[in-house]
Write a protein that binds this DNA or RNA. Structure first.
Length: 388
DNA sequence: AAACCGTGGCG
DNA sequence: TCGCCAAGGTT
């Protein structure tokens, strides 16, 4: 990927090769970071680093994977839960896959959880339970791509590589007023950033860029007056920092319609597991029909025969590229009713521990009597770990 | 290369 | 309210 600086191989862009400017930007940013670093559960802050403390590669890896396309706020409770239950690669590698998937439920992009397990097992089986200490080897592991490999290598192993995520993309494209729309412009960002990465403190430099992007150089209304790089920033000089990074227009979301069947047998609900690949791959689901472009005219085939009643309110859920509208059918079945092949009855009391994705939780919630709903489903994600 | 893959917070 | 989008990776 993007190798560290070197005099040659620098960017063709503006500040490239103008000696001193890179070092100036890095030292200004690090000085700012020393004062304003965010305190995060997986991070070793600048003061502790000066005291000789080192980041735990396992925790850095876990946090970076969780943070892929996911906000700090959403990640924090999951990170606490995971590290409490599985504090290292060995324990995570030994965990039952379904248990890990259930613990991930609600965080989204579920392939990450599968890759997380695969990666932990590979680290144990092939690397003696320790993460490889360089970006190239890291990038060969499941779920670790160009960004994550660089971030882990820089933060946990002091490799002076440029890690380009959404924050860095924004900061750097503004700094140099890079005009190529994303995602194509990402390459230019990496090339422009590489010469700025310092040999000393490359990990904190990376963390500093993230913090700057998250707190100062924000997508909207950046606080340029507070920015340690404002004197170097081309976009600010142009007067239009908010215009960067340029982005290609997105495609419209497809609409889909489906039916879901909430079957209750006493205090139990009928569930199934989704196929390992594709949307919500490998996750637990409420039995549901095919998802079609047009709403079904009559009730699709249910998982079992029962006096199904259609709920008045539909459940809508927005995925990244699909807007789903679900017609929910509910039924109560006799105590002896067997679960069809591939389905099982799940005790409602243990429903949260069963690890339903958010859309499925919404469907269950819509069908359950209001009184029992709150008690069963309303616990925050932070409480998940204590339930199993 | 472009499409696919979740969710919740926020302005 | 609702569109935007966050520490991307995989195919």
């Amino acid at each position: 990927m993007f190798q560290s600086s070197g005099a040659e191989g620098g960017p063709k862009g503006p500040a490239a090769g103008e000696n001193g400017e890179g070092a100036g930007a890095a030292s200004a940013l690090l000085a700012w970071y020393d004062r304003h670093a965010r305190i995060l559960p997986w991070r070793v802050g600048p003061a502790a680093r000066r005291g000789g403390e080192r980041p735990d590669p396992y925790r850095i890896w876990l946090s970076e994977v969780m943070l892929q396309q996911t906000g700090v706020k959403a990640v924090a409770p999951y990170f606490a839960d995971f590290t409490a239950r599985w504090p290292n690669f060995e324990s995570l590698a030994a965990a039952p896959e379904e248990e890990v998937m259930a613990a991930w439920a609600g965080l989204g992009y579920y392939r990450r959880a599968r890759n997380l397990i695969a990666c932990a097992r590979k680290v144990v089986a092939e690397h003696g339970g320790r993460l490889p200490n360089n970006s190239k080897s890291l990038a060969a592991l499941p779920g670790i791509g160009p960004y994550t490999s660089a971030a882990i290598a820089a933060i946990a192993f002091d490799e002076p590589v440029a890690a380009v995520d959404g924050n860095v993309e924004r900061v750097v494209s503004r700094l140099f007023a890079l005009a190529t729309p994303m995602p194509a412009g990402k390459k230019e960002v990496g090339a422009a950033l590489a010469p700025l990465v310092p040999r000393r403190r490359p990990g904190e430099f990376t963390e500093a860029l993230m913090d700057l992007g998250a707190t100062i150089c924000t997508p909207k209304r950046p606080a340029c007056a507070l920015c340690p790089l404002n004197g170097l920033c081309r976009a600010r000089a142009r007067g239009d920092p908010e215009a960067y990074p340029l982005k290609a227009p997105k495609r419209a979301r497809a609409g889909r319609h489906a039916a879901a069947f909430v079957a209750l047998r006493g205090e139990e609900i009928l569930l199934a597991r989704r196929p390992p690949e594709g949307l919500l791959g490998g996750m637990t689901e409420v039995p549901n029909s095919e998802w079609r472009a047009a709403p079904a005219k009559k009730m699709p085939k249910p998982p079992l025969a029962a006096p199904w009643r259609r709920l008045e309110a539909k459940v809508t859920h927005i995925f990244t590229h699909i807007e789903l509208e679900v017609t929910v059918y509910a039924a109560t079945v006799p105590a002896g009713t067997a679960a069809p092949q591939g389905f099982w009855w799940q005790d409602l009391a243990g429903l949260r521990a069963a690890g339903l994705p958010s859309v499925m939780l919404k469907i269950v919630e819509a069908a359950l009597p209001g009184a029992s709903r709150g008690a069963r489903l309303a616990a925050p994600a932070a409480a998940r770990g204590s339930l199993s």
